[in-house]
Amino acid sequence: MLKTLLYVNEDLASSIALRFTDYLNKFVKLSLYIIHVEEPDAKEQVGTGWVRRTWEDGVRSSGKRLVDRMLRTENIDCPLAGRPKIVVEESDFLGERKDREVVYELGNGMYKLFIKGYLDSADPEKFYELISSKLSTETSCPMLVVKNLSLSKKCALLCADSVDPKLLVEKSMDILGDSTFDLDLVFFKFKENEELRVLDPKEGGSYLRETEALLAERDKVVNNVTVLSGTPEQVGDYLKDYALVASTLPSRKSMRMYTLAHSLASVLLVG
């Protein structure tokens, strides 16, 4: 069982994330925990001592009702391993506090996977904001960015010349190693083509061969190896047939980062 923390808010992204987590549980057995950070209006924040504690209890109850509503509405089958954790955000930390609380919980709770909903956007900068935030860079475990409810039975490892094969295989297999997903390897080569082109697997070079060898060492069967040549938009669209796509966390704005931003499938960021 993979100890997993899912961030829930009352929005479309969380609605999709809840349902996708439920779907994921059919392929990877999850021990699921939920966290929600309640963000009261700065003007509402009051006092110190018991006054503040009483006020916080009220805010926390409101957050609990929100999570209950979401769970009731989405009616997921995946059982929760514990009570949802509701954190009250303090105004002096503004948005950073939310990330900090989640990062703290992830480290403290020894979670193996963090799941967060992300409403897919045509603007890749928003995706970059997410993956360069504290939440992505300081978490102690891989993060699954749920973009869509793709009910596919296969997942892919996205390789490229900038992806360390050892890191990708080791960390992604910590999550997907025992899963019942069919596994594909997709190697991305950037080129401004009119249409997406599928190249000979030899074009993937040594990084692809090393990735295949590392998976073979772990007795993982790879169903398809595809080398794609195209733009991030074209490859992103190609990836929509997967339930999720795993890759290492891009450290900068690169073509691979843009590809993950344009992926309609959910993205598992490792490393």
């Binding site: 929005d11 479309l12 999709i16 349902r19 045509a122 929509k240």
Partner: peptide, 25 residues
């Protein structure tokens, strides 16, 4: 807008149609 998208997604999921969602400016 998100509320509308939730409604649509539910409608289509109930009919076993999967939809990909995107929000644009």
């Amino acid at each position: 807008i998100e509320q509308r998208m939730v409604e649509l997604l539910r409608y289509y999921n109930e009919r076993e149609v999967s939809g990909w969602v995107t929000l644009i400016d």
